[in-house]
Computed example of a mutant assay.
Amino acid sequence: MTRKTQTEPGRRLRCAIYTRKSSEEGLDMEFNSLDAQREACEAYIASQRAEGWACLRERYDDGGVSGGTLDRPALKQLIADVEDGLIDVVVVYKIDRLSRALMDFSKLVEIFDRHGVTFVSVTQSFNTTTSMGRLTLNILLSFAQFEREVIGERIRDKVAASKKKGMWMGGYVPLGYDVVDRKLIVNEAEAAQVRTMFELFARSDSTAAVIRELNARGIRSKRGRPIDRGALYKLLHNRIYRGEITHKGETYPGMHEPIVDAELWDAAHAVLSGNRNQRAGPAAAPSRPYCVA
Rank of each mutant, 00 (worst) to 15 (best):
R114E: 11
A16T: 06
L140P: 03
Q193P: 00
R156V: 12
R59Q: 15
G176S: 06
I155W: 04
V210T: 06
V122F: 06
D61E: 15
T207Q: 14
A270E: 14
A161H: 08
K94F: 00
T129H: 00
R3N: 12
A262T: 15
T69H: 09
R229V: 01
E199V: 05
R3Q: 11
G218R: 10
E147N: 08
A161W: 04
F31S: 12
Y60A: 10
K21T: 07
M103C: 10
L272F: 13
R195M: 09
D88L: 13
R49H: 11
Y172L: 10
G116R: 04
R3F: 14
I17P: 00
V89Q: 07
L98D: 14
I240K: 09
V271L: 12
G176D: 09
G64I: 08
V65T: 07
V210R: 00
G152D: 08
S273N: 15
T128D: 12
R203C: 12
Y44P: 03
R14D: 01
G152L: 09
E213C: 03
L108V: 01
F126E: 07
L141P: 04
R59Y: 04
R49W: 07
A284S: 13
R11L: 09
E250G: 02
F105A: 10
V159D: 04
E149K: 11
Y290P: 04
F198S: 03
L34E: 03
I87S: 12
E39D: 14
R220V: 15
Y241C: 01
A43R: 15
G63L: 02
V271N: 02
E188K: 13
H256D: 09
A262F: 06
S131V: 00
G10A: 06
E24C: 06
K248S: 12
V89C: 01
T246G: 05
R97G: 00
P174F: 05
A216T: 05
E149D: 15
F201S: 06
R148Q: 10
A43H: 11
K76E: 02
R217G: 11
